[in-house]
């Protein structure tokens, strides 16, 4: 597998040299492979947002290096804009970044800055809109006339349209209702599958991460506390809870059963999985048909 992003001893300190000095990220080392879907979790103030903004050069690390495709992104600070096109970043509540007259024009903003034009631009915009499930007829509307969920999609499309190699989404489902969350999440998965791109999904909703991520990165107080396959991370439910995170209810139920001596596996993440595990056991007992 090809490594796309590598972090070497990365650290960040806010307000260095002032009385308000605060170490937000501390000595993080990790590598992310091309085509992976990574879940990023951590309590508020764990440093995960700072870490994410270092990936596309919005924040310059105080220590260490960020390597994109093997090259230090800060080797030539003047070309840092180039990095921002290659690592697309969708902020929390991205709908607040919409500003153009029409949704179409707004989605154009990023790719146009990247230098796309003509047919190429049009194609990028329409594809991005399709990935986020934005209906074509909405493209000619003013972004301010859209519903909350549609605005969110338009904003995400604006980043996807830059055709980034890595897409970072910070809490893309925040504030959406369960249905909106579900639909958006499945669209992200579809995008990931079709483009074979690297996606980093930052989320408080552990259920979402559990469902879609290949590997999960856990931040705790500025440090990388875990970075492992999803199942393995969620089998450490106690540790996650200690670092201020909430584990899916089903994971905890299965863990309790395991503790009480029942033969169920660790790190069960979804209701489907729990059902697959429990049904045969109950069948053997003659409790199910």
């Amino acid at each position: 597998m090809n490594c796309i992003l590598e972090l070497k001893n990365v650290g960040f300190v806010y307000g260095r040299g002032t009385p308000f000095e605060k170490r937000a990220v501390d000595n993080v080392n990790l590598t992310i492979n091309e085509g992976e879907l990574i879940g990023v979790i951590g309590h508020t103030g764990s440093g995960k947002s700072t870490l994410m903004q270092m990936l596309n050069g919005l924040i310059r690390p105080s220590d260490g290096q960020v390597l994109l495709g093997g090259k230090d992104i800060w080797a030539e600070p003047k070309k840092i804009r180039e990095v921002r096109f290659r690592v697309g970043m969708v902020f929390q509540y991205p709908e607040y970044q919409l500003f153009e007259e029409t949704v179409y024009k707004d989605i154009c903003f990023g790719p146009q800055n990247r230098g796309l034009s003509g047919k190429e631009l049009d194609e990028a915009v329409r594809k991005a809109a399709d990935f986020t499930g934005l209906k074509p007829e909405l493209l000619e509307k003013s972004p301010f006339d859209l519903s909350g969920g549609e605005k969110r999609r338009a904003a995400i499309a604006g980043v996807i349209a830059m055709n980034p190699e890595v897409l970072v989404l910070d809490e893309p489902t925040a504030g959406l209702d369960p249905m909106g969350r579900e639909v958006l999440l499945s669209q992200i998965v579809r995008y990931h599958k079709e483009r074979h791109n690297t996606v980093l999904l930052v989320s408080h909703t552990m259920e979402d991460v559990a469902r879609v991520a290949d590997r999960v990165l856990v931040m705790n107080r500025g440090r990388l506390s875990m970075f492992a396959p999803t199942k393995e991370v969620f089998s450490h439910a106690d540790e996650l809870e200690k670092s201020g995170l909430k584990v899916p209810q089903i994971t905890k139920i299965m863990q309790d059963l395991r503790r009480q001596g029942f033969d169920v596996p660790e790190g069960v993440l979804t209701v489907d999985e729990a059902f697959e595990v429990l049904a045969p056991i109950l069948k053997k007992e003659g409790k199910l048909w």
Binding site: I253, V271, F275
Partner: peptide, 10 residues
Amino acid sequence: PQSAELAYRL
């Protein structure tokens, strides 16, 4: 709730 969903399916 996940517990309700599991119970319902069982």
